[in-house]
Simulated assay, not measured.
Amino acid sequence: MTADDLANFFAMLPGWEEKFRYIIDLGKKLPPYPEEYKKDEFRIFGCQSLVWLKSDYKDGRIHFVADADAAIVRGLIAILMVIYNDKTPEDILGFDIHAWLESVGLSAQLTPTRSNGLHAMIKRLYTFAENAQEKH
């Protein structure tokens, strides 16, 4: 699945109740997050929920796992996984997530605290991609 696939699927859903149900379902399909990474070193602060994100750079691509204690936030993580997981630092930094979120209407639907948390996760991924790019 790609960001375009996700946007097209969102466009087919009739309303935000269905879209949020789909986001929650995406979150249920996240790969398990290892318990040993549920510590402050990997925690995303700025989120109302507890959120952890662990990134690794291998073979020119960034791989990450993440988890949250709230269903909607887990779904937002799943969206980020579709867009960013297993991508090069250049792909990550070159994708305009804010325009994408705006295009699917998600920006306007998130509460301020969820929006802040989502942007904190994106910022962490961008920082990791920038650091990986500098090292190689």
Rank of each mutant, 00 (worst) to 15 (best):
Q133H: 13
M81N: 11
K54P: 00
I97F: 15
L13R: 08
M81H: 14
F45V: 12
Y126P: 00
Y84R: 08
L6W: 07
V51R: 09
G75F: 04
I62Q: 10
D5C: 12
Y37E: 13
E35I: 05
A68P: 04
W52Y: 15
S115I: 00
E17M: 01
I79F: 04
I77T: 12
L26N: 11
F10V: 01
F20T: 00
I122C: 08
M121V: 10
Y57A: 09
L6P: 00
T113H: 14
V82N: 04
Y126R: 15
S103G: 08
T111V: 03
W100G: 02
M1D: 04
K39P: 00
V51C: 07
Y37W: 15
P14H: 06
L30K: 05
E90V: 12
L50T: 10
I62S: 09
I79P: 02
I79H: 02
N116H: 08
H119T: 01
D86I: 01
Q48P: 00
H63Q: 13
A11I: 03
F20G: 00
G117D: 12
D86M: 09
K135L: 15
R43P: 00
L76A: 02
G75V: 05
F95P: 03
V73H: 02
I23R: 06
I44E: 05
P14W: 00
A70E: 11
H136A: 14
A108N: 12
I97K: 03
N131I: 12
F64Y: 09
P89K: 02
P34E: 14
A7S: 08
F128D: 11
K54E: 09
D40L: 08
V104N: 06
E130W: 08
N8Q: 14
T127Q: 15
A70F: 07
D96V: 03
I77S: 11
L106I: 04
I122T: 10
Y57Q: 07
G15C: 10
R74P: 05
E102N: 09
D86T: 07
L26Y: 11
V104H: 05
M81Q: 15
F42M: 07
D91I: 02
V73K: 01
F9S: 04
A99Y: 03
G117K: 09
Q48T: 09
L106F: 03
S115Q: 03
K19F: 10
D67E: 13
F42P: 05
V51K: 07
N8V: 01
E130R: 15
A70L: 07
T127S: 15
H136W: 13
K38G: 01
